[in-house]
Design a protein around this nucleic acid. Structure first.
Length: 457
DNA sequence: CGTCCACGTCTAC
DNA sequence: TAGACCTGGACGG
């Protein structure tokens, strides 16, 4: 399920599962893996991960002297990471990193369809934009300052898959986002986005009213951040590789994509767009929106209501659905995995030689004990109340919110506060994200309403 | 058994 | 703007 939430959760999985492990030896690549051999070997090294949009970077760092090796992965349609017994890796494990344990384990890049790949070096693919999940302000700015680009001549549903502007959005997210924004998928992208530029000044409201408005009516670009954030912050980890039962939870989270009663059409790239209501002015002709899609064995008793399904009615079958994942086979890794290799030999990929990149990056992990303010579902609760807001330099904050209407962050100033490099420990927001706020005022509290986490800085 | 479909890029007419 | 690149699950006959 690789869109940005899955990439991000894969990174979290790697950091949690491998954080305390020592790896050793070389990196093993399957005969049919898409990516290059990894010229790295070490007596003892650690593995860490970071994500950006639909890319995931692994860093192999020797415990002793010696250079680190970085790899940047794309997951294609079916990629994932998994830590398992080295002796019995899953099928289609195309890259393996071995731990230095007694029965060794292997961190595996697993990818049945092999559309995924990896490159050597630490650089993100240069023509992909900022991450919708982790670089929200930069993402928003990148879109709103480039609206003359012909990428925005297209219908919004197609523009949303353009990774130059929407790095991390994929087919299920675009459906979920447009559905919540109540925007017809084939409305022209520029029309939709131009409107966001102007609706940002909305004076004569109190701060808390504005915040509430923002929270209750997130615009399209905010939803590009907020919707994937929900997946990442879900109580039940919707994509925990070690819990195969959670696919049902994911299905249940979906409000539009694959949901019975919703309409669907093929866009100009022949990708299925799911939506509700009118398709919009740029809809391809000669295709009748086809509804239903009954072959979701997840909801057996679904009444065949011909009426337009409403929000309430489509919350199908509550938790009653059973996970549609039947087989847990995938074992019996045949010794010669894909000997066939019929048509077309593996094309020679021009491996972009990683040019040096300075990137001060190196985020200091400012560990804190998180005061667990876990609330369900992005609910801000009384945090937004007038009382809490008192004492902020409201004008500055408002000004900033107007420029970067981030519904999820709010800052409280404390005059004598020394700013330090830090990250939100929950979601590993990069320090670049924070710097935007540092310019306003030193933050004391930084809260992601979408995550329900409160971070003391 | 065969057909259709899938969470994504790429490049070749 | 088609395809190519792949495996595998769901579904129909």
């Amino acid at each position: 399920m690789p869109e940005c939430p899955e990439l991000h959760l894969a990174g979290r999985y790697i950091n949690e599962a491998c954080g305390g492990l020592v790896f050793e030896g070389g990196v093993q690549r399957s005969a049919v893996g898409r990516g290059p051999e990894v010229p790295f070997s070490s007596e003892a090294y650690r593995v860490t991960a970071a994500s950006r949009g639909k890319e995931l970077r692994l860093t192999l760092a020797p415990l002793g002297p010696g250079p680190s090796q970085a790899l940047v992965f794309r997951f294609g349609m079916s990629g994932s990471f998994r830590l398992c017994e080295a002796a019995s890796p899953p099928r289609h494990a195309h890259l393996r990193f071995f731990t230095r344990e007694s029965p060794p384990r292997a961190l595996c890049f697993v990818d049945p369809r092999r559309f995924g790949t990896w490159r050597l070096g630490e650089d993100w693919q240069p023509d992909r934009g900022p991450c919708v999940l982790l670089e929200y302000p930069a993402f928003r700015e990148n879109v709103l300052t480039n609206l003359e680009d012909k990428a925005f001549d297209k219908p919004i549903c197609e523009a949303l898959l353009n990774q130059k502007y929407f790095n991390g959005i994929g087919n299920y997210l675009r459906a979920e986002i447009l559905y919540r924004a109540k925007i017809p998928p084939f409305e022209k992208a520029r029309t939709v986005l131009e409107a966001l530029k102007h609706q940002e000044q909305n004076s004569s409201l109190t701060l808390s009213k504005k915040l509430k408005l923002k929270r209750d009516n997130p615009d399209l670009l905010e939803l590009c951040h907020k919707v994937p954030m929900e997946v990442v912050a879900a109580d039940k980890n919707l994509f925990d590789p070690s819990d195969s039962d959670n696919y049902a939870a994911f299905k249940n989270w979906l409000q539009c994509y694959l949901v019975p009663g919703m309409s669907s059409l093929r866009d100009r790239n022949n990708r299925t767009i799911w939506f509700q209501g009118e398709p919009g002015p740029m809809a391809p002709k000669g295709q009748k929106p086809h509804k239903k899609h009954a072959h979701l064995k997840a909801d057996p008793e679904e009444a065949p209501t011909p009426t337009v399904t409403t929000r309430a009615s489509k919350r199908r079958s509550g938790g009653a659905e059973k996970p549609p994942k039947p087989a847990v086979k995938e074992e019996e890794e045949k010794a010669v995995p894909d000997g066939s290799r019929k048509g077309r030999a593996r094309g020679k990929k021009k491996v972009a030689a990683a040019p040096t990149l300075s990137e001060p990056d190196a985020p200091v992990r400012a560990k804190r004990n998180r005061t667990s303010t876990r609330r369900g579902r992005g609910e801000a609760g009384d945090f937004w109340s007038e009382g809490m807001v008192k004492g902020i330099r409201a004008s500055r904050v408002l000004q900033d919110i107007a420029r970067h209407p981030l519904t999820f962050c709010l800052l409280v100033s404390l005059p004598t506060f020394q700013v330090q490099p830090l990250q939100c420990e929950f979601c590993t927001l990069p320090s670049t994200h924070l710097s935007l706020w540092k310019r306003v005022t030193p933050p004391l509290l930084w809260r992601h309403a979408g995550l329900g986490c409160l971070v003391l800085l």
